[in-house]
Design a protein around this nucleic acid. Structure first.
Lengths: 138, 138
DNA sequence: AAGTGAATCGGAATGATTCCGGTTATGGGT
DNA sequence: ACCCATAACCGGAATCATTCCGATTCACTT
């Protein structure tokens, strides 16, 4: 997702264009991996030393609800990354060393939901963890 | 997994047979779903009103490391359940209303890892969330 | 330029989990 | 059956991520 696409979504929903939101989105657009609220804060403090965690979490949650960011729990911590391509449903390999991700186009759900009659499926999570080629080499 | 199997594993690894461990295992053996440390504590307080969270977490972590319990993060909280059948790799449908689970024998990993050359896969997570037939009806 | 509600701030509160120093109890050896 | 070493436990404080809250500031509408 590009910055322009993100802002279009926000404007459609009447969210205001604030400096904090610009900084957050800029940070995600230039970091192609899952980030924690603390990492976002470190970056934002360069511009805004008094940034509140409340502001960060509020915006991250909003962005995730709007589909601008993807969210997942890793080691009990919330992590966020820019939505890579909402048009094609996919999953991720996540490097446990550097945090970088790689798309996995396959989704196992189709062949499985047929075996769950009477169940009301709300969502699913499929993630593969390990070391990416770069981190394997080091 | 049965209580006997669990105790055999513990004895193999020289863990002591304590009252607390008996209570914890008993609780899991009679609850076929993911439970939180707080739920475990509530149950244990019937016998042992002064039970410490430290004791609960220490044992839950030990059990999970030994493969006696399965662990997952749900809504940012650690949840544990008795390992259902370690001999057959599988995944779970998890009811978001009652917490009960249903085994999903299908694992999507085989057909996917072939597309990850040079990646070192350490693990994966595949869970389906929704309402079980009983909770759909209510 | 003024008004209004959204957004932010800062700091306290919460909730889950872990740490720690002191105490208790299990299981092996006598 | 008793002793001992050490695993296990206890209670409470500490930590960490996250949320709440009352007061202030800011972005957009008119």
């Amino acid at each position: 997702m590009t910055l322009d696409e993100a802002w279009r979504i926000l404007q459609d929903k009447q969210f205001k264009r604030t400096k904090n939101r610009e900084t957050i989105l800029q940070f995600f657009s230039q970091n192609d991996r899952y980030l924690t609220a603390a990492e976002v804060r470190s970056f934002m403090e360069l511009d805004n030393p008094g940034i509140s965690f409340d502001t960060i979490y509020r915006n991250l949650t909003t962005f995730a609800e709007l589909g601008i960011l993807e969210e997942t729990d890793l080691m009990g911590e919330r992590h966020f990354r820019m939505q890579c391509d909402a048009s094609v449903h996919h999953h991720h390999f996540i490097c446990t060393a550097c945090g970088k991700t790689r798309s996995i186009p396959h989704c196992p759900m189709e062949m499985i939901t047929v075996n769950l009659p009477d169940y009301e499926v709300e969502g699913h999570k499929f993630e593969i963890y390990g070391k990416c080629p770069l981190c394997v080499a080091n």
